[in-house]
C-alpha cells in the first residue's frame, strides 16, 4: 500500500461562532490517483470536508479543529493556504464567484503570477491548460461573457495551471445545464485516468459518480457512515433511501425487480449497461 495522499484522523471541526460540530470524528484515507465521490445531503459536512483538505479550514476560517488532516505528508493546520495551493486545487459551485480578472488568460495566469512563474513559462502553460479544458482560443475573452459550463471549466483551468496533485470539485455542476455537466465530468475523468490526478468530487449526481468514481464516501450529520466502492455503496439501496439520498436509477430498478422476482441474484447493477444486461437475463428467464 503506498502512502495515502490525504489522511483524516479523528477529525472533529466546529465553525467559529457555532456549538454543533460540522464534522464528527472523521477518519479515512485517500490513495494517490483515486477518484473519490463524496455524497450527502446539504448540511452533511461535504463542503467543510473539502475545505479541510486545502487548509482553508482552519487557517482561513478559524473555528476549532481536533484530530489531524494530513495532505501530501503535510499537516494542513501548520501551513498557510497559499502553500497548500501548490498541492491542492479547489473549484467551487458558483464559477462566476471565482472570476476576478479581465480576460480568460489572466484568470488562468493569476495562480502562476502568485507563484512567481516566469512570463515565458506562463505563455506556454496557459494555452496548454486552456486546451486541456476545451477553451483553446478563448484567451482574450472576458470571463463574465462565457457560458456557465465554460466559466466552470475556466475555474478548473485556473487551478490546473498550478499543477496540483489533488483536484477538489465542490458541486461543480450545480449551476450547469446537462451539456455543461457532461463537459466537466468528462474532463475530471480524463485528468484522473490520463494524468493520475487525485480527484475528489462533492456531488449529487449519483449516476455520474457510479460511472466514474473509484470510491464513494457518504456523509450524514458530519459523520462518515459509508465508505466503499460505488458497487458496494449503491447496492445498499434501502439504507441510502433511509438517509434520503438518491441511488442510480439502474440500482433502484434492479432492487425493485429483485423484490418482484425474489430469487434473482448477482451484484446490483449501478450503471445503465449492466442493468440492461440484467433485465435481458430476467426477461429470458421468464420467457422460458
Amino acid at each position: 500500500m503506498p502512502e495515502p495522499i490525504i489522511a483524516f484522523d479523528a477529525v472533529t471541526y466546529t465553525y467559529a461562532g457555532t456549538d454543533e460540530p460540522a464534522l464528527h470524528e472523521i477518519s479515512f484515507e485517500i490513495q494517490p490517483g483515486e477518484y473519490v465521490a463524496i455524497l450527502g445531503l446539504n448540511g452533511a459536512g461535504k463542503t467543510t470536508l473539502g475545505l479541510c483538505v486545502n487548509g482553508v479550514i482552519p487557517t482561513m476560517l478559524g473555528g476549532e479543529l481536533e484530530g489531524t488532516v494530513t495532505v501530501g505528508g503535510l499537516d494542513v493546520s501548520e501551513y498557510p493556504v497559499r502553500e497548500m495551493s501548490k498541492l491542492v486545487g479547489v473549484v467551487f459551485d458558483n464559477p462566476e464567484f471565482q472570476m476576478s480578472q479581465m480576460s480568460v488568460a489572466e484568470e488562468v495566469a493569476l495562480g502562476l503570477e502568485n507563484a512567481g512563474v516566469p512570463y515565458e513559462e506562463m505563455k506556454r502553460i496557459i494555452p496548454d491548460t486552456l486546451e486541456l479544458v476545451g477553451l483553446a482560443g478563448f484567451e482574450e475573452r472576458s470571463p463574465l461573457g462565457l457560458s456557465g459550463g465554460q466559466q466552470q471549466r475556466l475555474a478548473i483551468a485556473a487551478v490546473l495551471a498550478m499543477k496540483p496533485q489533488i483536484l477538489i470539485m465542490d458541486e461543480p455542476t450545480s449551476n450547469l445545464d446537462p451539456i455543461g455537466k457532461q463537459e466537466v465530468f468528462d474532463m475530471a475523468a480524463r485528468l484522473n485516468s490520463e494524468r493520475g490526478m487525485t480527484v475528489i468530487v462533492i456531488e449529487h449526481e449519483v449516476e455520474v459518480m457510479a460511472r466514474y468514481a473509484d470510491r464513494v464516501i457518504v456523509l450524514d450529520g458530519g459523520r462518515v457512515i459509508m465508505n466503499g466502492t460505488p458497487q458496494e455503496i449503491f447496492s445498499r439501496v434501502e439504507e441510502l433511501a433511509a438517509l434520503k439520498l438518491r441511488v442510480p436509477e439502474a440500482a433502484e430498478l434492479a432492487t425493485i425487480l429483485r423484490t418482484e422476482y425474489g430469487d434473482w441474484d448477482g451484484p446490483v447493477p449501478i450503471t445503465t449497461e449492466p442493468a440492461v444486461a440484467a433485465v435481458n437475463d430476467l426477461l429470458g428467464a421468464t420467457r422460458d
Binding site: L51, N54, V56, M60, P80, V81, R82, M84, S85, K86, V88, G89, V90, F92, N94, F97, Q98, S100, A105, E106, A109, L110, G111, L112, E113, N114, A115, G116, V117, P118, Y119, M122, I126, A155, A158, V159, M162
Partner: peptide, 27 residues
C-alpha cells in the same frame, strides 16, 4: 458579502496571499 467571501477563498486557494516574488502575465 457572500460573493466576496467565496472569491477570497478561491483567490487564496490560488496563492493570492503569497509573499514571494510575483510575476506578471501581461507584458
Amino acid at each position: 458579502i457572500e460573493r466576496v467571501q467565496q472569491l477570497s477563498i478561491s483567490l487564496e486557494s490560488r496563492g493570492f496571499g503569497s509573499n514571494g516574488i510575483k510575476t506578471s502575465y501581461r507584458q
